[in-house]
Structures are given as structure tokens and as C-alpha cells.
């Protein structure tokens, strides 16, 4: 089937198998490989992207379900001149990553969280990121980064 999806502000279109998952559309069709595939079972959150502005796990969404809708990946966050998004900047400044595998999903989940709750408490940040696993156990600095980004943008 043919799908047309606006990805990071750009209209994309391709003929795909009906069973194509959104994450494969992003990685294999569009070559946007920042979005990682981790557990592949809707658990780890590495594949988190925004669908119409809300965080979803793209390993559990069909490309067909995103047809006609807007998707944002971490590649679409920074400004055109390269200025980082406040959440990216906060992860950088607070050392909110170690190996970096969970980071794209973590950042997108944080962007979605701050959109719904611009001034979260630490507890709300921890609950808001419960769908994203970091196996370096860098949670402490990740939470710090999200709180710093909230401070910066509120």
C-alpha cells in the first residue's frame, strides 16, 4: 500500500507492505536511523517518536496507522541552524546519557512529557519516563536533565 507521512516537517511517501512497522519505515525507507529498535516488544522505549505530537513506541505502530499524520523523530528536534532543542541541550549539559542507545527515545518521551506537563515534579518525571529503559542506569542524570529542560522552557 502507499503511505504518506509527514516526518520532521517534510512530506514523505512510499509503497510499503501492509505489515510494515512505523520504525522500519523511518529507519529502512527514510534512512532516519536515530530511532533505535531495542526490545521490539513495546517495553524499552528506544523506538519512541512523536505521532501528532504525542510519544508512541514506533515498533508497535503500523506505518499504515501513521498514514496522513505527522511524525517527529529526534532528527527533527534541532533548529535548522543546528541549535539543539532545550531537552537535547539539557541532556548534554547534565550528562543524561552514557552509551546513548536509549537516548533518542528518552529525549522524545521527555519532549512529550513536558508538552503535557511543563513543570513536572521529580516524581512526575520518573513516572513519565517509566516506558523508557536505560541499561547503563543513568536514570538519575536523565531525570536531572528533564527537570533542567523544564526550568529552561517554562
Amino acid at each position: 500500500m502507499k503511505v504518506t507521512i509527514t516526518v520532521n516537517g517534510r512530506e514523505t511517501s512510499a509503497e510499503v507492505e501492509d505489515r510494515t512497522l512505523l520504525v522500519h519505515y523511518l529507519r529502512d525507507v527514510l534512512n532516519l536511523t536515530a530511532t533505535n529498535i531495542g526490545c521490539d516488544t513495546t517495553t524499552c522505549g528506544a523506538c519512541t517518536v512523536l505521532l501528532d505530537g504525542e510519544a508512541v513506541k514506533s515498533c508497535t505502530v503500523l506505518a499504515a496507522q501513521a498514514d496522513g499524520r505527522e511524525v517527529t523523530t529526534v532528527e527533527g528536534l534541532a533548529a535548522e541552524d543546528g541549535t539543539m532543542h532545550p531537552v537535547q541541550k539539557a541532556f548534554h549539559e547534565n550528562h543524561g546519557l552514557q552509551c546513548g542507545f536509549c537516548t533518542p527515545g528518552m529525549v522524545m518521551a521527555a519532549v512529550s512529557l513536558l508538552k503535557e506537563n511543563p513543570r513536572p515534579t521529580e516524581e512526575q518525571v520518573r513516572a513519565g519516563l517509566e516506558g523508557n529503559l536505560c541499561r547503563c542506569t543513568g536514570y538519575h542524570n536523565i531525570v536531572k536533565a528533564v527537570l533542567a529542560a523544564a526550568e529552561e522552557t517554562a
Binding site: T42, A55, V56, K57, A109, S112, G131
Partner: peptide, 9 residues
């Protein structure tokens, strides 16, 4: 239920 991403879907 699940996590925020799951609850969005």
C-alpha cells in the same frame, strides 16, 4: 496501564 506511550495508543 502500561506507560505513557502505551496510554497514547
Amino acid at each position: 496501564i502500561g506507560d505513557p506511550q502505551v496510554r497514547h495508543r
